[in-house]
């Protein structure tokens, strides 16, 4: 049967500390996921050990600084660059920072704006 899941809310300041703790416990980073709800962005960090997911959620506003965890989990740069490019979130201190060139899209930060088909930049070219 499917596992039950919980998401623990944490503050932005705790992100790095939690990542360190999870790595010490022998968890791997499964994913970082971002959702825009009205004006705020939710970022979920999911770790896993022995097939059990542990999720932590932070909520930020556009322009808030999010510390990178790429110093702890080297591979997190793909998620953090994705957040930068698609949501326009300000993740600082990424080990391999593509500076907005990881995903190149016709609309800047497509997931942070509402796009209607008519004024879609790529559609009319």
């Amino acid at each position: 049967m499917m596992e039950p899941q919980t998401i623990v809310p944490i503050s932005v300041g705790e992100v790095v500390q939690k990542a360190e703790q999870e790595k010490k416990d022998g968890c791997r980073l499964v994913l970082m996921s971002c959702t825009k709800i009205d004006d705020i962005f939710e970022v979920i960090y999911s770790y896993e050990k022995d097939l059990r997911l542990k999720n932590y959620r932070i909520t930020v506003k556009q322009g808030d600084e999010i510390p990178s965890i790429s110093g702890i989990y080297w591979g997190s740069f793909v998620y953090e660059n994705e957040m930068n490019d698609l949501f326009g979130l300000n993740v600082t201190g990424i080990n391999i920072d593509f500076k907005g060139h990881f995903f190149q899209t016709s609309v800047k930060h497509p997931f942070s704006v509402t796009i209607t088909k008519e004024d879609d930049a790529c559609q009319n070219r």
Binding site: V30, L31, S33, C34, T35, G75, V78
Partner: peptide, 16 residues
């Protein structure tokens, strides 16, 4: 639905 986010295997296999 509000959000559908897919984390695919190749995406996370890029760092390795």
């Amino acid at each position: 639905i509000l959000r559908h986010r897919v984390r695919t295997p190749t995406f996370t296999n890029i760092p390795p």
